[in-house]
Amino acid sequence: MNHLVADVDAAATATYADLFDALSDPTRLAILQHLATGEHRVRDLVEHLGLAQSTVSKHLACLRDCGLVAARPEGRSTVLSLAAAPPLAALLRAAEDLLAATGARVSLCTHLVRPEEG
C-alpha cells in the first residue's frame, strides 16, 4: 500500500503548540475573558483573579509571547488588551463546535466568543 507522507514543518508545528499551550491554562483563559471586556492594568487583573502579581505577570508574559495580548505603557502602569480579538473569538467558537461534536457542549465567555453579537 502506497502511503503519502506529508512533510512536517517542525517550526510551524512548534508555533501551533505554543499557541495551544497558552490557551490550555485556566488562569490564562480567565485573563483573556477579563480582557475581552476591555483594557485592564496588571493590578486590576490581580484584584479580579485573586492571584499574586508575579503569577499574573507570568501568565501575561506567555500570552504576550504568543501575540494574544498587547501591552502599552500608561504612566507607571501597563495597560493590557486583546491583540487579536476577532481571530481569537473565531478560534474559541471553533473550539466550542469541536467540544459540542465530542459531547462536551460548553461556552467559555460570551464577551470573548461572540463579540460581534454584543
Rank of each mutant, 00 (worst) to 15 (best):
residue 13 T to C: 13
residue 74 E to A: 14
residue 26 P to N: 02
residue 74 E to R: 13
residue 118 G to S: 12
residue 29 L to A: 13
residue 45 L to M: 04
residue 95 A to Q: 03
residue 77 S to P: 00
residue 62 C to E: 11
residue 4 L to N: 03
residue 45 L to V: 06
residue 16 Y to T: 09
residue 86 P to M: 04
residue 76 R to F: 05
residue 44 D to Q: 09
residue 72 R to A: 10
residue 42 V to Y: 02
residue 101 A to S: 14
residue 15 T to A: 13
residue 75 G to K: 00
residue 61 A to V: 12
residue 58 K to M: 09
residue 37 T to Q: 10
residue 104 A to M: 13
residue 62 C to G: 05
residue 78 T to G: 01
residue 45 L to Q: 00
residue 98 L to R: 13
residue 30 A to T: 13
residue 17 A to M: 12
residue 13 T to I: 08
residue 115 P to H: 07
residue 9 D to I: 05
residue 70 A to I: 02
residue 37 T to I: 07
residue 108 L to P: 00
residue 61 A to E: 13
residue 33 Q to D: 15
residue 95 A to F: 05
residue 19 L to G: 05
residue 90 A to N: 04
residue 73 P to M: 04
residue 40 H to K: 15
residue 2 N to V: 15
residue 50 G to I: 12
residue 80 L to H: 09
residue 1 M to F: 03
residue 70 A to C: 04
residue 50 G to Y: 10
residue 110 T to C: 06
residue 8 V to I: 15
residue 109 C to K: 01
residue 73 P to D: 12
residue 87 P to E: 02
residue 34 H to N: 15
residue 83 A to Q: 03
residue 28 R to V: 09
residue 60 L to R: 09
residue 81 S to Q: 02
residue 117 E to H: 11
residue 56 V to M: 06
residue 57 S to P: 05
residue 3 H to Q: 04
residue 49 L to F: 09
residue 112 L to Y: 04
residue 94 A to C: 07
residue 12 A to Q: 14
residue 71 A to G: 07
residue 11 A to C: 11
residue 103 G to L: 11
residue 117 E to W: 10
residue 41 R to E: 04
residue 15 T to R: 09
residue 61 A to M: 10
residue 12 A to S: 11
residue 94 A to H: 07
residue 96 E to A: 12
residue 89 A to H: 01
residue 20 F to N: 05
residue 58 K to V: 08
residue 42 V to A: 12
residue 100 A to Y: 03
residue 89 A to T: 04
residue 85 A to K: 06
residue 57 S to E: 09
